[in-house]
Simulated scan of single mutants.
Amino acid sequence: MMLMTTNPYKAVFIDLDGTLLNKQSVVGERNAACIKKLVAKGVKVIFSTGRPIESVRHICGAIHQDDPVITLSGSMIHKTMFGSPMKAQTIPFETVRNILETCRDLGGVDNIMLDDEDGFYSLHENEEIEEFVGMFHKRPKVFTYDQVPSSAVLSLMIHSKANRRDIYTSLHEKFGADAHFTYFKEYPWIEISNFSSNKGVSMTHVCEAYGFQLDEVIAIGDGANDLEMIAAAGLGIAMGNADEEVKAVADRVAPHHTEDGFAVVLEEIFGL
């Protein structure tokens, strides 16, 4: 018999990197046990990450797989870990083409990565793309500036070691009304998605599907792509290792992710 929670929170939306995962990019024993205890109490556990679904399945599939999963920083929602897509928001084709043309003219771009529901594409096969090879478990298809490889691009990532801030500023000024931009202080990629796509919007969509109010859910994360989700949740939690701008919108701060901060704070809130 499932034990139902008396806690006012019915769901927890969980970022992966820098939140649930440790330095080795795996879920530690205490965090995994915490998730299983939440599920046993009837709490919905929704992973919400910038990673593609293939990577989430590899990392978290053995821990929990029955609730929706938000991937690509909100561009996709899957009904369950191994279920079909629930919602997908693509970047308009013309916007993608114009961004690529502008990147070519600006210069200073080391690589560009695009992905759709079938896989991912890169401008070059170089070292910057290797982390995505590990996430997708396949090699990318190579494209050129002159040819947009897909008409259904979910996410566009731009890598620049030398001019990332300048490239971000130029692109955001020109296309900020057409797409959603995320700039990470430590992560060397600029993330671009559909204008109406972010983790907060996708969290709201999942809540509507389950009949939850936003004040009945918790969101926990550490990065710039967690801002909207943490700000919108009834209880927004920033990790101790989170960016200061993330901590500024959070209701409370958990310990560092290397100290099992996720489990520490959720165990306290739910009395696990």
Rank of each mutant, 00 (worst) to 15 (best):
S197P: 08
I237V: 13
N194I: 02
V217K: 03
D226M: 03
W189G: 09
G176Q: 08
T182V: 15
A219Q: 12
A238D: 12
I190Y: 01
M229F: 02
A224P: 14
A233W: 05
P255D: 14
N198I: 08
S197M: 11
A179W: 01
F184V: 06
K185F: 07
K199N: 11
E173A: 07
G236W: 03
E244L: 11
D226R: 09
E208N: 14
F175Q: 13
G223S: 15
V246D: 05
V206S: 07
K185V: 14
E173G: 10
Y187L: 07
S196Q: 13
E186C: 01
D226N: 11
N225L: 08
A248R: 15
L235V: 06
E186P: 00
N241I: 11
T182C: 08
E173V: 00
A177H: 13
E245C: 09
E228N: 13
V201G: 00
Y183S: 10
F184S: 14
D222K: 09
G234A: 05
N225G: 03
D215W: 01
D243W: 06
V201K: 12
G223R: 12
Y187V: 11
S202T: 02
G221V: 00
D251A: 02
N225K: 03
H172Y: 09
A219S: 14
N194G: 01
D222C: 11
D226F: 06
L227H: 11
E191C: 02
G240T: 05
G234V: 12
H257F: 15
L214H: 06
V246E: 00
F184D: 13
W189Y: 10
L214T: 03
D243T: 01
S170L: 03
S202F: 07
D243L: 09
I220H: 08
T258L: 13
M239H: 03
F212P: 11
D243V: 04
I220L: 10
E208Y: 04
V249A: 04
M229W: 06
I192W: 01
V206T: 06
D251L: 04
E173S: 11
V246W: 04
G240V: 01
C207G: 02
F184T: 12
I218S: 02
V201E: 15
D243R: 03
A224V: 05
D178T: 03
G234S: 07
Y183H: 12
K199D: 14
N241Q: 08
A232P: 09
C207P: 04
S170P: 00
F181K: 10
E259Q: 12
H205N: 13
V249F: 01
E191M: 07
D178R: 05
C207A: 15
E186V: 05
M239S: 01
D251M: 07
Y210Q: 11
P188W: 02
K185E: 15
E208L: 10
M239P: 08
